[in-house]
Design a protein around this nucleic acid. Structure first.
Lengths: 164, 164
DNA sequence: ACACTTTAGGTAATATATTACCTAAATATG
DNA sequence: CATATTTAGGTAATATATTACCTAAAGTGT
């Protein structure tokens, strides 16, 4: 009969295998979602990453955020935000304005056109988001919601640690 | 008192809000994991995406796969696989060889150095993967494993549909 | 065998994300 | 107040991922 050490080792192996699977599949799912959403947005001349940045900007901030604030909120670099913001400004969705209080800071301000677009798209956004999760029970969504909350927290800590 | 339609609508809103959160956080977590792992691998002169491609190659295929096969397995394009494969070949981890049976096909073959590296890294891989999931109960890992399996399936279908 | 289509991969341009390094404004500290 | 450090953002180079378009080999149908 298996002793408790063996049983523990097998448990760990099983867990590790599942973690490995989750890791690879999470990358795969984000890759596919990114593509699927980009197709949805193609007609509007914006990309998935630009759409994502607008979501973060409107959800995480009351007032127009600085480039660095957006970069932190998205766990990316100010250089990356600059590239996205420049394209969104060209597209007419953003205005990049210098803060009069602090001459180093550039603030990203959503334009009227952006707000109108956002209103207009809500229905389609709901349809495409819903379709990504079809086949999942309400209870599974709830579970996933809570687990992703924990992964968000852990990944944030490890990210900050790795950045140092 | 709320009628059943109202209750249903509130349920749907709650679910949609959770789905929206899951979507954004999944992108965020993959962004952070990608960065964290890249720091781990930096000393070995490979990137997270290169590491991921090697994992897929060794797990999904018995024999050296073609570029297109790897692209399909990773839900990306043959052009992208080409870029990654070229860098891995320069790094000494891959050999790109023409198939004598079918002159159109290029097969990606792991080198001796790659296999040795893989053996050597196993312990570190386990440590870094495990750390990504710290704070999650075994039951949560199991739940997440199953739910990600469903998302993998749905996203695959939607991806294929969007590709058409 | 011959035309038609499909499949595998190539090049090039563009978008996203990083590292590396720079300037200038703001802040801290003696 | 003068100097040192930190902070916000700039440019440029490189890696990854896509679209668009091309060639050639292989497969199909008659």
């Amino acid at each position: 009969m298996k002793d408790s050490h063996t049983i523990k080792a097998e448990f760990d192996a099983e867990r590790l295998d599942m973690e490995r699977y989750i890791l690879v599949v999470l990358f795969l799912v984000q890759q596919r979602w990114s593509y699927i959403i980009s197709r949805d947005l193609a007609g509007d001349q914006i990309t998935t990453k630009q759409w994502l940045m607008m979501i973060v900007m409107t959800n995480a901030f009351q007032n127009p955020p600085s480039m660095q604030e957006v970069a932190d909120a998205m766990s990316t670099t100010h250089q990356n935000v600059k590239q996205l913001a420049t394209r969104l400004e060209t597209r007419g969705f953003l205005k990049i304005e210098r803060d009069p209080e602090n001459k180093r800071i550039l603030r990203l301000k959503a334009t009227e056109e952006c707000l109108e677009y956002w209103d207009k798209r809500t229905a389609e956004d709901i349809k495409s988001i819903t379709s990504l999760f079809r086949g999942l029970e309400d209870s599974e969504i709830k579970n996933l919601f809570e687990i992703m909350g924990k992964l968000e927290k852990t990944s944030s800590e490890l990210y900050i640690e790795a950045k140092k």
